[in-house]
Simulated assay, not measured.
Amino acid sequence: MTMVPFRQFVLKVHSRCNLACDYCYVYEMADQSWRNQPRRMSRNTMYQVVERIAEHAEAHRLPSVSLVLHGGEPLLAGTGFLAALIRHARRTVPARVNVSMQTNGTLLTQEHLEVLAGLDVKIGVSLDGDATVSDRHRRFTNGEGSHRHVERALRLLSAKQFRGTFAGLLCTIDLRSPPLATYEALLSHTPPAVDFLLPHGTWTQPPPGRGKGASGTPYADWLLAIFDRWYDRAETWVRMFGEITQAALGGTPAVEGLGLRPSTVVVVDTDGSIKQLDSLAAAHEGAADLDLHVTRDAFDAALSHPLTRLRQGGADSLAATCRRCPVMRTCGGGLFTHRYGHDGGFTHPSVYCPDLLHLITSIRRRVSGDLSRVAQ
């Protein structure tokens, strides 16, 4: 099996967060190893991470790489540290270095944006809808809701001088929130893109609304209510819908959690540990661990790890049920994390299997119907 080199490096620049979101896979789920991590990545570790990325880019002749500044809350690392990291990476890595950051938005200020925009950093903000929905989950440790603080940040991001920095909104689905009202609340901030995230869960610890073996499709139904609106009006780019629609037209999904393209994501924790997808914290203690470290190991060591081979294995790594499925090439078995069960590891279909099947089939039907009418 030929392995595909890593192209997206998720750097956990700070291991703590100023919010206490009740669904967070880092702090609230199976793996609690964050407690043993240094709060901020040290300068020495940062330099070593960049050297390893440069080594990987040169060895595989990569034209570009993506750095994703993550946490915790990456702004807690300070813009001085972030700027030093970015500048060092662009000086050192023999490839174009694209940089993005995922933030909860509560700490974002004009001063931060001036620095980050000057460094061409694309900023994604997490927001689950209106104040009622967001403040249900996304709260400070004292119980105060975060929505009004995020709104302030989004007003800054939407200003003309910073508009090009705004990457979009990330929304974790809450089945209790009305889908169209949630979508409209997100649209009110004129995001260039919206990502809807299925709450992380596994067969061992199913997500809300998905009991073991349940055949219902609550998440697909929620999403399809928004899809019909999106498909008719195209008010912004909704990544999940766009990727599935392109697949219906003969394309190949290009996002983690859809399709059969090999995963090219690797994570580096604040202590310099090289890890698998950080969402694997939802599976079990140590699920993302590779026993590798930037001070002694190249990223190729992570590339040859059995778990990486499984993540890059395409159809051969999927459950037999998935390989027989008519939407396999679009679904790709769903997100790797969501396949986990203690009685077979990551060999299961996604815990969201019924939802993914219904969602993809319904979108295909809508697109195919339009194509048939155009062809007449």
Score class of each variant (00 low, 15 high):
Pro179His: 00
Leu335His: 13
His70Leu: 07
Leu19Trp: 01
Ala30Trp: 00
Ser368Tyr: 13
Val125Asn: 00
His342Arg: 14
Phe336Glu: 15
Val68Ala: 13
Glu51Phe: 07
Gly80Pro: 02
Leu19Arg: 05
Val268His: 07
Ser362Cys: 11
Ser279Asp: 11
His348Trp: 06
Met101Ala: 13
Leu197Pro: 05
Lys160Gln: 06
Phe6Pro: 04
Gly80Asp: 07
Gly216Phe: 12
Trp230Leu: 03
Pro207Glu: 10
Leu156Cys: 03
Asp31Tyr: 10
Glu235Ala: 12
Leu85Lys: 08
Glu285Trp: 05
Gln161Asp: 09
Ser362Pro: 08
Ile244Glu: 04
Gly250Ala: 05
Ala181His: 11
Glu151Val: 14
Ala302Tyr: 04
His88Pro: 14
Ser263Ile: 02
Leu290Ile: 00
Val26Ser: 05
Gly286Gln: 12
Thr236Met: 10
Gly272Met: 03
Leu303Val: 03
Ala315Arg: 07
Pro179Trp: 00
Thr252Tyr: 01
Ala302Glu: 01
His189Trp: 15
Arg309Gln: 08
Lys12Asp: 05
Val265Thr: 05
His70Tyr: 02
Pro94Lys: 14
Val65Pro: 11
Gly272Leu: 02
Ser177Phe: 06
Glu256Asp: 11
Gly272Glu: 01
Asn18Gln: 05
Leu277Trp: 07
Met46Val: 12
His56Val: 04
Val266Cys: 10
Arg366Gln: 09
Ile363Gly: 13
Gly124Ser: 06
Ala302Cys: 02
Ala193Leu: 10
Ala214Met: 14
Ser215Trp: 08
Val49Ala: 07
Leu187Asn: 08
Leu198Ala: 13
Val68Phe: 07
Ala30Thr: 03
Leu113Asp: 00
Ala131Gly: 05
Ile226Phe: 11
His60Cys: 10
Arg90Phe: 06
Thr264Gln: 10
Tyr25Trp: 13
His293Lys: 11
Asn142Cys: 02
Pro349Arg: 15
Thr106Trp: 00
Ser317Ala: 08
Thr295Ile: 01
Val150Ala: 03
Lys275Leu: 11
Val4Pro: 02
Asp195Lys: 07
Asp130Ser: 09
Asn18His: 01
Val121Leu: 01
Val99Asp: 11
Glu51Lys: 10
Ser368Pro: 10
Ala57Asn: 10
Arg61Ala: 14
Glu28Leu: 12
Leu224Glu: 02
Asp289Val: 00
Val351His: 14
Leu359Lys: 06
Pro207Ala: 15
Pro326Tyr: 11
Thr165Trp: 02
Pro94Leu: 13
Ile244Leu: 07
Asp135Gly: 09
Leu11Arg: 05
Thr45Lys: 02
Gly201Gln: 08
Gly105His: 08
Ala95Trp: 13
Ser177Ala: 15
Arg155His: 13
Asp291Ala: 10
Phe6Cys: 04
Ile123Arg: 01
